[in-house]
Every structure is written in C-alpha cells, then in structure tokens.
Amino acid sequence: MTVDDGVRGRRVLLAGGTSTAGRTCARALVDAGARVIVVGTDAARLSAIAAEVPGVATERCDLTDADAVDALHGRVLAAHGRVDGILHLVGGWRGGGGLAGQGDDDFAFLLRSLTALRHVSRTFDADLRASDAGRLAIVSSTAVDRPLAGGANYAAVKAASETWVRAVAQGYAKHARDAGREPTAAAVVFRVKSLEGLERALATSFVALWDDEAVAWNDTVIGIDQPV
C-alpha cells in the first residue's frame, strides 16, 4: 500500500463517532474503501451506526479513562491491526452568560474533550508514527481566533486542544527527522464555526488528508465554512 492509494485500505478510528458528523464521516470513509472503527460510550448509538453504515466496526469506551483507552488499543490491535488515522470528534458546547456564566461544572464538561484527545493521541501515537500515512485530526472552532466572554470556557478548551495537536505534529516531524527519513504522519486541525450543515465538508476534508504526503498537512489549520 502506498499514499497513492489514498485512504483505501487504511484503518481509521473515529473517536466519539456516533454523532451526525461521525456517521457522515464513517460513511464517506467506507465509500472510499477505508476500514472504519467507531468509538463511543452509548451502546444503542453504536448499534445504530453499525446498522446505518454497513462495514464499520464499533467499540464502546470512555475515552476520558486512560486505562479504558489502553484496553481499547489492545482490542483494536488484536482485531484490526495498527490504525492509520484518527478523527477526534469528542466535543460539545456549554456557554453563555458572560464571564459570570462560565461555571466550573461547564468547564469540567468541556474539558472531557481535551482529556480524551490526550489519552487517544498518546496511546495510539506509535501506530500513527509507524504507518506510512498516519493522520490525526481534530475539529476545533473559529472561537479560538475570536473568543467571546460567553464562550470563554469553550474557547479555552479548544485553544488547548489545538496546542496539543500542534505538539503532536512537532513530535511526528522530530521522530522522522531523528530516523533520517521523510515524515509519514501528520496532525491537523479543522476549524468550523458550527458543524451543522458542514458534516459532509468535514468528511470530504478528512478523507482528502490521504491524497497528499504528510508534509503537506502536518501542523496545519484548515478552515471549513462551505457545504459540499
């Protein structure tokens, strides 16, 4: 398999993939010939996506639990082999009420996305670095560039998530440089104002990450603002 094959034959994990965006991405990946593993916490929603998108595998896991993610990695490795791509879709919105409305409970809820990202990207790091076309991507927000008082918690967590992904990108580049070879893994940030109506655009953009070499994508921020 070479990068000329695009995403065909690649093993791709959708973290928090039972949302509308996750189902759309799963369908696009399967249509492109990828082998897809959808991870979520709700058994009913996992069953629904397996029925809706034939060919996907599903795994139930709390991605905020480090031990559970380690166990997930073992199951995925045994059943499917090393993964070539991860799209992080764990998220959610809580906000409003200005700074006074930025409560600790809401912040803790939003922070789960960053915690899950840290666990998944660290646990599957060796897989993505070993792949000849490893890809990690997250969905962030335009709020990072223009944070509002009523969304301060949300923007702060998204900014931290982007910083984490940029650090992952540097790690991919350093690993390749230390090995004396060209990079094969890339970490990417997708930014949207809202995913509503842009699910297909996200799916198309994610699938396209396998259409070029890693150096074209690593440590990039890609805005998605038009439906396809």
Rank of each mutant, 00 (worst) to 15 (best):
L89R: 00
A133H: 15
G180A: 12
G85E: 03
R122E: 13
R35N: 13
L202V: 08
D225E: 13
L89N: 00
L128E: 00
V139M: 05
I86T: 00
A167P: 09
D132Y: 11
S140V: 08
E52C: 10
V157F: 02
A167R: 11
G33W: 12
D105C: 03
R60W: 07
A43V: 14
Y154E: 06
G171V: 13
P183M: 09
A208Q: 09
D67P: 05
G9D: 13
T115L: 09
G180Q: 12
L198A: 08
R118I: 09
L198D: 01
F107G: 00
V139P: 05
G40R: 04
G150N: 06
T220Q: 14
G101N: 06
E162N: 14
R45Y: 02
A79V: 10
R75I: 11
R200S: 14
F107A: 13
F206E: 04
H119L: 00
K193W: 06
I222N: 06
R122N: 12
L29I: 03
R146C: 08
A133W: 03
A155V: 00
W93A: 00
R122H: 11
A133S: 15
V7H: 01
V188D: 05
T220R: 15
A26M: 08
V3I: 15
V228Y: 11
A173V: 04
T115W: 06
D219H: 10
D67N: 15
T220A: 04
A169I: 06
A137I: 02
A176I: 11
G55V: 13
P147N: 11
E196Y: 07
G171A: 08
S194H: 10
R122C: 08
A143W: 01
A156E: 05
E162V: 06
G81D: 12
A130P: 09
A173P: 04
R23E: 12
V7I: 15
A100Y: 08
A44Y: 10
D145F: 04
V207D: 06
E52W: 09
E196Q: 13
G151Q: 00
I138P: 07
D127W: 09
G9S: 14
V165L: 11
N218R: 08
T41H: 12
A187D: 00
R8Q: 13
V12E: 03
A214Q: 06
R177E: 15
E59M: 14
G223D: 13
L148N: 04
T123Y: 04
E59S: 14
C25H: 01
E213K: 12
N153H: 07
E213A: 15
T142G: 09
Q102A: 04
V207A: 11
A137H: 01
K158G: 05
G33L: 14
D31Y: 01
A173K: 06
S131N: 09
R166N: 09
I49M: 05
A48V: 11
H88M: 08
L99S: 10
R10Y: 07
I138A: 02
G223H: 04
F124S: 01
V228H: 13
F206Q: 03
